[in-house]
Computed example of a mutant assay.
Amino acid sequence: MSTVSKIVPFGSGSRIVETARRTLSTASQGIDALEVQFSDRDFAAIFLRLVGVIMDVRGRLIVTGMGKSGIVARKLTATLTSTGTPAIFMHPADAGHGDLGMVTPDDVVLMLSYSGESNELGPIIHYCKRFGIPLLGLTARSESTVAAASDVCVLLPAVREACPNELAPTTSTTVQMAFGDALAIALMEMRGFSADDFHKFHPNGSLGAQLLKIRELMAKGDGVPRVREDASLLDATMEMTRGRLGGTAVLNQDGELVGAFTDGDLRRTVTDTQHLTEPVGRYMTPTPLTVGSDDLASEALRLMHLHNVTLLFVCDGGQLVGAVHMHDLLNAGVA
Score class of each variant (00 low, 15 high):
Val36Ala: 06
Val17Thr: 13
Ala186Leu: 11
Met177Ala: 08
His325Asn: 13
Asp222Ile: 15
Ala249Pro: 12
Phe47His: 14
Thr79Trp: 07
Met102Trp: 01
Phe131Trp: 04
Leu301Val: 08
Gly84Lys: 06
Phe89Ser: 02
Ala147Tyr: 14
Arg22Leu: 14
Arg130Asn: 07
His327Ile: 13
Ala95Tyr: 10
Val108Trp: 14
Met90Trp: 09
Gly281Phe: 09
Leu329Asn: 00
Arg41Asn: 10
Arg60Glu: 14
Met90Glu: 06
Ser293Leu: 10
Gly65Thr: 08
Ala148Met: 11
Pro164His: 06
Leu311Tyr: 05
Arg160Glu: 10
Thr241Arg: 05
Glu120Tyr: 15
Met177Gly: 07
Ala168Met: 07
Asp235Cys: 15
Arg242Met: 06
Thr269Ser: 11
Ile54Ser: 05
Thr237Glu: 12
Ser172Ala: 03
Leu251Arg: 07
His327Thr: 08
Glu117Phe: 02
Val51Leu: 08
Met238Ile: 15
Thr139His: 01
Ala147Lys: 02
Ser115Gln: 02
Tyr114Met: 03
Phe179Ser: 00
Asp265Pro: 07
Arg215Gly: 02
Leu76Met: 05
Ala323Ile: 14
Ala300Thr: 04
Lys200Arg: 10
Ile62Pro: 15
Ile16Tyr: 14
Ile125Lys: 14
Leu34Arg: 00
Ala87Glu: 00
Gly30Pro: 05
Asp272Glu: 11
Pro279Cys: 08
His307Ala: 09
Thr285Tyr: 01
Gly264Asp: 12
Gly101Ala: 07
Ser142Phe: 09
Leu257Phe: 09
Thr145Val: 13
Val146Pro: 13
His275Phe: 10
Ala162Met: 06
Ile31Met: 09
Phe313His: 09
Met326His: 01
Asn119Ile: 08
Leu217Gln: 01
Arg74Asn: 06
Gly221Trp: 01
Leu217Ala: 02
Ala168Lys: 14
Gly243Asn: 10
Leu330Val: 00
Leu76Gln: 12
Arg244Trp: 09
Gln37Gly: 10
Val152Trp: 01
Gly13His: 08
Leu48Phe: 03
Asp263Leu: 06
Ile71Thr: 13
Leu276Cys: 12
Arg41His: 11
Ala209Thr: 00
Thr83Leu: 04
His327Gly: 03
Ala162Tyr: 02
Lys75Phe: 01
Arg244Gln: 04
Thr83Asp: 07
Val324Met: 03
Met177Lys: 07
His307Cys: 07
Thr241Gln: 09
Asp40Met: 08
Pro288Ile: 03
Arg15Ile: 15
Glu35Trp: 03
His325Glu: 09
Leu156Pro: 00
Asp196Trp: 09
Ile31Lys: 03
Leu233Ala: 05
Asp197Tyr: 15
Cys163Asn: 03
Thr248Met: 04
Leu155Lys: 10
Arg268Leu: 11
Ala300Asp: 03
Met190Pro: 00
Ile133Pro: 01
Ala33His: 04
Thr104Leu: 07
Pro286Trp: 13
Thr145Ser: 05
Asn165Phe: 11
Arg21Cys: 13
Thr19Met: 11
Glu161Ala: 02
Ser115Arg: 08
Ala78Arg: 13
Thr170Gly: 04
Asp56Trp: 07
Val108Leu: 08
Val4Ser: 05
Gly208Arg: 00
